[in-house]
């Protein structure tokens, strides 16, 4: 395919994905982006329900550990640091993507993945440590809600890592084309979204838990 990638970032994926020479009736790239935003909306509501459940359950410790006893300040601070940084490197990757540079895009995506893996590793470590101390999700309503909310976010992050690895392979094989552009762009929306969800987890779960 001989489609030039639009160099102007303000055009975003829309500018890049129009395959004019085939005379498409509609603009595929923006259609996918819209569809993905709709998915993000439903995912946001899913998380809202989990947050609501957590807020109802956080005092229901049933004699088990309270948030204050459970939360490990250095642990979740590092998690936050890694994930926020990964969002920044993800932004650098899309910047390179807009410039049409596959290799440096992949480079920043690798950094993003490593940071993401660090986040997932720390979270897994936090969960296992807690569980070994008896704070399992069977212990109380609070812990059930905690593991489910934070774990759902962690699953999202893990899925995002697997997803972007597939995209890096495609970038390496095909370079930046309208299709790979659109795919990586959509993934970056997902990754930033998870970052925002984490900010809420950080405040509503961890800081709020310590303050109670």
């Amino acid at each position: 395919m001989s489609v030039a990638v639009h160099p102007n970032p303000s055009h975003g994926p829309q500018g890049a994905a129009v395959e004019t020479e085939h005379g498409h009736e509609h603009d595929n790239g923006s259609l996918y982006v819209l569809g993905f935003w709709l998915f993000i909306i439903q995912d946001l509501i899913l998380f809202s329900c989990l947050f609501a459940t957590y807020l109802v359950m956080q005092g229901r410790t049933a004699g088990g550990p309270t948030p204050k006893e459970l939360f490990d300040v250095p642990g979740f601070s590092w998690e936050t640091f890694l994930l926020l940084t990964s969002s920044f490197t993800c932004g650098l990757a899309t910047f390179q993507l807009r410039r049409g540079k596959a290799a440096s895009t992949i480079g920043w995506l690798v950094v993003t993945v490593l940071l993401g893996l660090g986040f997932v590793g720390l979270e897994a470590n936090e969960f296992v440590t807690n569980a070994l101390e008896g704070a399992t999700m069977q212990r109380s309503g609070f812990l059930s809600a905690f593991y489910t909310l934070v774990g759902t976010h962690g699953c999202h992050v893990s899925l995002g890592i697997g997803w972007v690895i597939l995209l890096m392979i495609q970038l390496a094989r095909r370079g930046v084309t309208p299709v790979t552009f659109r795919k990586v762009f959509i993934w970056s929306i997902y990754w930033h979204f998870l970052d925002i969800v984490w900010v809420f987890i950080y405040t509503a779960v961890y800081l709020n838990g310590l303050a109670r």
Binding site: T53, V56, M57, R60, T61, A62, S140, G141, S144, Y147
Partner: peptide, 12 residues
């Protein structure tokens, strides 16, 4: 065996 909606264990 979580306790979201159970009678005991802090479920609601």
């Amino acid at each position: 065996g979580a306790h979201f909606f159970t009678l005991t264990g802090g479920g609601d």
